[in-house]
Design a protein around this nucleic acid. Sequence first.
DNA 1: GTTTGACCGAGTGGTTCACTCGGGTTACCA
DNA 2: TGGTAACCCGAGTGAACCACTCGGTCAAAC
Lengths: 152, 152
Amino acid sequence: MSPMWVSTKAQYGMRALIEIGLAGDRATSLKTVATREGLSHQYLEQIFAVLRRAGIVDSVRGARGGYRLARTPDRITALEVVELLEGSVAPVSCVEDEDTCDRVGVCGTEGLWRDVDRAVRDVLGTRTLADLIAERDLLHLEPAPDLQHLGA
Amino acid sequence: MSPMWVSTKAQYGMRALIEIGLAGDRATSLKTVATREGLSHQYLEQIFAVLRRAGIVDSVRGARGGYRLARTPDRITALEVVELLEGSVAPVSCVEDEDTCDRVGVCGTEGLWRDVDRAVRDVLGTRTLADLIAERDLLHLEPAPDLQHLGA
DNA sequence: GTTTGACCGAGTGGTTCACTCGGGTTACCA
DNA sequence: TGGTAACCCGAGTGAACCACTCGGTCAAAC
C-alpha cells in the first residue's frame, strides 16, 4: 500500500458515518455498513466503540439495532472525527505539544509546520458530515428501489 | 512521542538544509550540522545520501569537506524536500494512486482527502528554503563572532 | 428461546521508524 | 607520506504501530 498519514481507522470511520447518516433516524447495523462499504465488520466495531464514547453516534442494541448519528450531520465536522480516531492531525509533534522539542523558538521550520497544521485543520474543520453526505448523494449510487420508476 | 505524520527524516532534513544554506557557498560538514542542531551524525548521513542523489545538495569529499546547496535556496521548495524524504505527503493512498482503492468515484470522502492534499501541497509548495533561511535569520541565534562588536 | 447485533478485551503478524554499526574511499595538510 | 577529517554505503535492530482477528458476553426483537 502506498504511504499515507490518515489511518484506515479514520478513513473507514468517515465512510461509515456517511452511510449511517444516509439512513437518517433509523439505526443502521455495522453488518450493513460493512457489506455496503466492503469493510471488516469486526474492525468497524472497534471504531464505533470510540465514536459512541465520544458522543458522535448513539447505539441501539438487540435485533434490528445498530447505530445512528447522535447529532445532526451539520454539527459533526471531519476534523472532530479524524482527530478522534487518529489521535492528532499535526504534522510534527511540537505543533501540538511544545515540550516534545527543546528547540521551540530556535527552530527555522516551526512556522512551516504550524502553517501546514493550520491548513489541514482549516479544510477538515469547515467540512461537515452533512457536506459529505450531500456529495455522496450527487454520486447517486444504488438509487432507492421505490424511486426506480421515476427514471427513464 | 506524540503522533505525527511528517517523519524525523523530513524534519531533520529541512533543519539541516537551513543550516547548510546559511553557510552559502562554503561546504558544511554533517558533524557541524549534527552538533548545531543536536541530531545524530550517522542518521544525517543517511538523509543526505538521498538529498545528494536528488540533486538538492552537492558533496565535497575529504578533509574540510561537507555539503552545500546544489541550487540557490529560492529554487528548493519545502514540498520537494518533504516528498523526497517522506515518499509522499498524501493523506490517503487513493489520492496518489487510484488503483489502491476500488471505490474511486464511489466514495463520499474522495473530495475531502483531495482537498486536504491540495492544501498541504499548497503550503509546502509555496515555501522555499530561502524563506525558511530568512525566518531563521530573524531569530538571529548565535551571531557571528566578528559581528559582535557592532552591537550595544 | 433463538436470532440479531451491540459490547468488550486480548492477541497477532507484518511493517515501519529511527536510528546504530562497521566498514570503505577520498582529499586535505603537515 | 602519513594521519586525519569527512563523505559513502549496506546491513542490522529494537521498539512501536497498524490493521486487523478471535472469542466471548449482554440485550432486544420476533
